[in-house]
Amino acid sequence: MLPKFSHVRPDSLRKALSFLDENEARIHGGGTDLIGCLRDRIFTTETVVSLSAINELRGIEPTADGGLRLGATATIAEIAENPTVVAGYGALADAAGVVASPQLRNQGTIAGNLCQKPRCWYYRGDFNCLRKGGEICYAYEGENQQHCIFGGDTCFIVHPSDTAPALAAHGAVCRVSSPSASRSVAVEALHVPPSVDPRRETVLEDDEIITEILIPKPPAGLRASYRKVRDRASWDFALAGVALALVFDGDTVASARVFLSGAAPVPWRAVGVEKAIIGTELDNATIDAAALATVDGAEPLAKNGYKIELFKGLMTEQLEAIRS
């Protein structure tokens, strides 16, 4: 049985925001992560504010400038199946299609996927780790097979989202509302690295809600993909993942945005890979250099050194696939 909480399911964003003033309110999008966290006593809450009855937060539709608007509560399945996403935003389509399981894709929302809590087994288990208010990261000297090789600093989680690196590669922006104001936050700037604050996952304040995600119009020549490698073929989090959004001019890479999952506590921009491939035709020597650049500066832990070779191989295969 879950711990007790009160529940409200308002029918407008304005009303929902007014309830976030309540002490310890938590937002319910699809509920898949929230209910799991409450069951595991990762945190408790006095009030669950559900967004599921708010029409203005739903839907997937084109924007006036040729881009796409994802309502905050659009489900992962709706996004994976959307013809415009499939036709124009390959990294997002690929990523949404491999999130969790069919049941979770039918329930989980895109904003919730961006804001989900870490999956580190110490964080989810009975450990008062640094991220939960304790003193240390237990993964650092513990069981760290699935943990990060970049950006650990004080907390060595990997960010669990597949859609975040894909949306970041597509240059997506979150629209965020609080009771008093609205603002835009680029997906690539949404997550907080442990070096800034190991106890928060996103830059959002407690009284802020992501209302929609805006993706720019796909540039001519865009080729985009996402692939994740798991311990098994389906229904697991990424050990390593690569999101590519490359703009080709003929056979030449004119621009590139490359993000990794399973690598760092936040979706990790692989700047070295971008530099290695821009201006090239992705010949074999370039791909070899890009594979090395993928893991340049990585600091594997005692039990996740395999991720070095995994990321190199994955980047090689993904670049070979996208050039042809």
């Binding site: 529940h7 399911r9 319910h28 509920g31 898949t32 209910i35 799991g36 669950v48 559900s50 599921s52 399945a77 069919p102 049941q103 979770l104 039918n106 329930q107």
Partner: peptide, 19 residues
């Protein structure tokens, strides 16, 4: 615990009854 909610499979264990 899979049930159909509006024809789509979902986990009843992660769905609040009120939802």
């Amino acid at each position: 615990c899979t049930v159909l909610i509006d024809d789509r499979p979902r986990y009843a264990c992660l769905t609040l009854a009120l939802e």
